[in-house]
Design a protein around this nucleic acid. Structure first.
Lengths: 152, 152
DNA sequence: ACCTTTCCTATCGATTCGATAGTAATTAAA
DNA sequence: TTTAATTACTATCGAATCGATAGGAAAGGT
């Protein structure tokens, strides 16, 4: 009971968003090998190959098997939000069960805390859906420029 | 790898906020027994007695030992936010290490995802600090009124 | 002394988490 | 038609975390 580091995002989600961001940088080209993504994003390829399953079955990416296979975004980067990705990887963004499922707790009609968790969950959803893969790609480009400049 | 229910608040946090909200309803009176809080809020007293330690060492509540002991809020309900409580129970509200601790990842200067996690964390913090225990107490009163009316 | 309450530490079983391993299926190219 | 490369699937591992319980020590009112 002494751990002091909660409220952390799972690595599953972190890696998943990193991968999608990587795919956004190669949108509209040939499919990308998982091997290359894993290397660029510095993630275990095996582990990423599990994460990718959820992204595909959520319809966010398309896959091609066999030699010269790989992955591509299923939609344009502007049409994929971070919320889409997190929902594919973590399920519904709902901080407590009783918000989306009132029958799960008998105290719903009394409990004053339930309201906050609902509000907070909605705000988180709004923030997440306001960021697209296109945004990520553009900040990546900006960061790259800055790095070049600071190296001069 | 098939679980589909992430992004959940820990019961530790849920119970902690419930307890603080209960204490807010009895502010300015004698200390409250943990036993009574546990009964009213429908939580294991033993479990709550662990959670309470973090709340006290964060300076959110004062305790009195011995017979007729118990707990009281350390400040007025208007002066305690939900953020205060969650930080006491879960530690810093920081979704990924690299945000508060840039040295923890070598990709900080390249990674475009880090920025979002920073923004999201800040928005969560804002939302949490905008709700005080006084707000919780007032919604509780409102809910109680509504329940009476709907029972007529 | 005695009872009640908070305080502290240890521990439990179950679940989740991050990660690895091995193999089957599919496809392009030689 | 063989070969090499790649995704797809399933099983499993060790460690960490989670929710919860247990038992007693310390403190204080009566």
């Amino acid at each position: 009971m002494f751990k002091e580091q909660g409220m952390k995002l799972s690595t599953r989600s972190r890696y998943g968003v990193r991968m999608m961001s990587d795919l956004a940088d190669h949108y509209d080209l040939v499919p990308i090998f998982l091997k290359d993504i894993a290397k660029r994003e510095d993630v275990s390829e095996k582990y990423l190959s599990l994460i990718v399953i959820s992204l595909r079955s959520a319809g966010l990416i398309n896959s091609t098997r066999g030699a010269h296979g790989g992955y591509k975004l299923a939609r344009r980067p502007e049409e994929i939000t971070v919320k889409d990705i997190l929902e594919a990887l973590e399920g519904d963004i709902c901080l407590v069960d009783c918000v989306s499922n009132p029958e799960s707790c008998s105290r719903v009609s009394i409990c004053p805390t339930r309201d906050i968790w609902g509000i907070l969950g909605r705000k988180i959803g709004e923030t997440l859906s306001s960021v697209t893969l296109a945004d990520l790609a553009s900040t990546r480009r900006k960061k790259a420029e800055n790095n070049i400049r600071s190296n001069i």
